[in-house]
């Protein structure tokens, strides 16, 4: 913390002489203290998972969700300051809804990430605001099937439209991560929060790059996500946590193109396997 006392860390909109914005770096510290959040882009969908640290035994289990739905096919999870995450989600919903009223179609995940990136970046520019104390992971599924204009009637030729280009693949699963600076990239696997290093190490072992052969399925992704959150929690073992997990598949898949909670049976099974994998690790060490 060489910045302390120099005065360059007191305001946004002021660069330090070596070109840094300390307010943004402090916001990143807020993220690093939050529970781990991850996203996995699988072959046929996206999984979002969150290590929700239990701050009080007086809070109801499975309540106070940390993963939110932004549009039917898009979910957001964030690590860091919870209220900042809520505001981020609220803005994302506004963006999705405004896109729908303009274009009469759901917003593509890439366009939502772009707009949210611009929004977050604007909070690094002015002395009157502070940057977002979160890193958000945005996951969604752009329809692979044709989507007609909302509200249009009629269906065109009985034989279907002519002149389609064969073999063109459209839509699919997408995953983006947006940092307090407004920086965002698309990812195969994304991790943020306290346990991000361990989580990233685990994500890198998975087969997620389609250019390197067959990638993991959505159901495998769910199991890996649960296991990775458990692995990432190892360093703060003394604290209790709840696993929160959602997924989005294609229209032809288990969620019918929607962002939903992972069903209880599948989640329980994933958690059972995750615990077993960790116990296995312990045995090896003995």
């Amino acid at each position: 913390m060489t910045s302390i006392g120099t005065g360059y860390d007191l305001s946004n909109s002021v660069f330090s002489p070596d070109g840094r914005n300390f307010q943004v770096e402090y916001a990143t510290k807020a993220v690093e203290n939050g529970g781990t959040a991850i996203g996995i882009r699988c072959k046929d969908g996206v999984v979002l998972a969150m290590e929700k640290l239990v701050t009080s035994r007086l809070m109801k289990k499975d309540a106070n969700k940390r993963i939110a739905t932004v549009d039917r096919n898009i979910g957001v999870v964030s690590a860091g300051l919870v209220p900042d995450g809520r505001h981020f989600v609220s803005r994302a919903r506004d963006e999705a809804s405004s896109w729908r009223s303009t274009y009469k179609a759901p917003i593509p995940v890439a366009s939502l990430a772009n707009r949210m990136g611009s929004y977050v970046q604007a909070f690094t520019l002015y002395s009157s605001v502070r940057p977002f104390g979160i890193t958000a992971i945005v996951g969604g599924f752009d329809a692979e099937t044709e989507v007609d204009v909302d509200g249009a009637v009629g269906s065109g030729p009985k034989v279907g439209s002519g002149g389609k280009t064969q073999g063109v693949k459209e839509g699919g699963p997408y995953l983006y991560m947006i940092e307090p600076s407004g920086l965002y990239w698309g990812y195969y696997g994304a991790a943020t929060g306290k346990g991000r290093q361990a989580a990233k190490a685990e994500l890198e072992k998975l087969n997620l790059d389609p250019k390197k052969g067959d990638t993991i399925s959505l159901e495998e992704g769910v199991k890996e996500a649960a296991r990775i959150i458990y692995v990432a929690h190892e360093d703060s073992k003394d604290k209790e946590f709840e696993l929160e997990m959602t997924w989005i598949s294609a229209v032809s898949g288990p969620t019918k193109g929607r962002h939903e909670d992972v069903p209880k049976e599948l989640k329980d099974e994933a958690e059972r396997l995750a615990k077993k994998a960790l116990e296995g690790d312990d045995e090896m060490e003995e």
Partner: peptide
């Protein structure tokens, strides 16, 4: 219009501003 994904499509918007997809 024509695009790679949907091929050719025809839409009509008559006076009231309704939208009709037609052959």
């Amino acid at each position: 219009g024509w695009d790679h994904r949907h091929g050719g499509q025809v839409y009509s918007i008559p006076l009231g501003g309704s939208l009709h997809k037609q052959a």
